[in-house]
Amino acid sequence: MDGGIDLIRQHVQAFLQESGSHGFDHTARVTRLCRRIGLSEGADMAVIIPAALFHDIARPLEEETGIRHEEQGAEMAEAYLRSAGYPGDMIHSICHAIRSHRYSSGIAPATLEAEILSDADKLDAMGAVGIARTFMQAGEDGTGIPGAVAHFHEKLLKLKDRMYTDTAREIAEERHAFLVAFLEGLEGEEGGH
């Protein structure tokens, strides 16, 4: 199985060569979080790890195609996994986790593995890494510090209360506190204090 995971990692990396707020480094962190949460929560690691690796594979294509990356990514994962001989029920579970991972997808995770992927993806938007990614995204979008601060209020500060698993809730508490402290300092400096 580990050889299969290495092949998936290489396959996904070929699609996520550009650095940025959703580059392969994000995928690697989400995969590590999924492993940590999955082991703690008793998840099926043969489902959660491939789902984590594939979860943003179509992110670079979304702007070009207009197709939501979670939908196109699930289709790309399914095609790859079928060609690699994965069992159909496992493919279904992996693809469900990919389709339901996005904060704004409107699809509720229906399995533990899908909940964990959703939690891990949200956790990577919190804490020190989340702050760095927010400012990277604001730079990519050209919205600067005001855009980053707006993103904190519109999304990031709400994530702590949207975790599914106990393990993720524990991690989120610490990362949320870091976000709040950073934002208070930033807004204080922006206000001239």
Rank of each mutant, 00 (worst) to 15 (best):
M1F: 12
D6Q: 14
H11Y: 15
H11T: 14
V12E: 05
V12A: 07
Q13H: 11
E18V: 12
F24M: 04
A28C: 13
R29K: 13
V30S: 04
T31L: 14
C34G: 06
R35Q: 13
R36V: 05
G38A: 12
S40R: 10
M45S: 03
I49H: 00
P50M: 04
A52Y: 04
A58S: 12
L61D: 01
G66Y: 09
R68S: 10
E70F: 10
E70P: 01
Q72T: 08
G73V: 05
A74Q: 01
A77M: 10
A79C: 06
Y80Q: 06
S83V: 11
M90W: 12
M90Y: 09
I91Q: 03
S93A: 15
S93E: 06
I98G: 02
P109E: 09
T111K: 14
E113C: 05
D124Q: 10
A125S: 15
G127F: 02
G130S: 10
M136W: 00
G139R: 08
G142V: 08
F152K: 05
H153F: 07
L157N: 05
L157M: 09
L159D: 00
K160D: 04
M163V: 08
Y164K: 08
T165K: 01
D166G: 13
E170P: 01
A172M: 10
A177F: 14
F178D: 12
F178C: 06
A181P: 01
A181M: 10
F182H: 15
L183Y: 14
L186H: 04
G192M: 05
H193I: 10
